[in-house]
């Protein structure tokens, strides 16, 4: 008997084909709702560190698309973990797996329903992992902070290694490369 997960999750892949539109490049790979099916998928696909720069993996709850425009993401934000290229071999895959295990295992205690999904962006210089939460309103500051602390804990990040919480609407309207950080821990 397989071990059921609390939620059904969908893995997406973004292929950076310049000849196609952004939406055409975003592909839904498959969904799973048991631990065993997660592992058979994970063991079957390329690791994030093996993807060509410009590509993304996204793992989101079924029914939520990995984009700002999705109704479940519009009011939300993301905890951003940045990893230098030199960390790609050592840390990227471990961090991405740990974030996925946190999500499918519902490890965010009372706040798990606020977690929508996560994306890993493999880029030439700096890879980024973003964990997307549903509501970035000030009233949910303690919820989003608790989620951020859990991420730092599970990833064994020191105080020196900061992660930043950004509202999607700030990320969308950012000038230059850096979006406004609402929290940093």
């Amino acid at each position: 008997i397989k071990h059921p997960l609390h939620n059904t999750w969908v893995l997406w892949y973004y292929d950076n084909d310049r000849k196609k539109s952004w939406a055409e490049n975003l592909k839904e790979i498959t969904s799973f709702s048991t631990v065993e099916d997660f592992w058979s998928l994970y063991n079957h696909i390329k690791a994030a560190s093996e993807l060509k720069p410009g590509s993304d993996y996204s793992l989101f709850k079924k029914g939520i698309r990995p984009m700002w425009e999705d109704d479940a993401n519009k009011q939300g934000g993301r905890w951003l973990i940045s990893l230098e290229k030199r960390q790609r071999e050592i840390d990227l895959d471990n961090c991405w797996l740990e974030i996925m295990l946190c999500m499918i295992g519902e490890s965010f205690e009372g706040n798990a329903d606020e977690v929508n999904g996560a994306t890993v962006n493999v880029r030439p210089k700096v890879d980024k992992i973003g964990l997307w939460t549903a509501d970035a309103d000030k009233s949910k500051a303690d919820v989003n902070m608790a989620i951020g602390r859990k991420i730092k804990d599970r990833l064994n990040l020191s105080n020196r290694q900061q992660i930043h919480f950004q509202l999607h609407r700030d990320t969308q309207t950012k000038s230059g490369s850096a979006a406004k950080n609402t929290f940093s821990i």
């Binding site: 071990h3 059921p4 997960l5 609390h6 631990v35 065993e36 592992w39 063991n43 740990e98 295990l101 499918i104 295992g105 519902e106 490890s107 798990a112 599970r154």
Partner: peptide, 18 residues
Amino acid sequence: GTRIVYERSTLMHLRNSP
């Protein structure tokens, strides 16, 4: 309702089960 939660160790243990 009750939430189905898995510790990291349980998930890692299940990785190797056939």
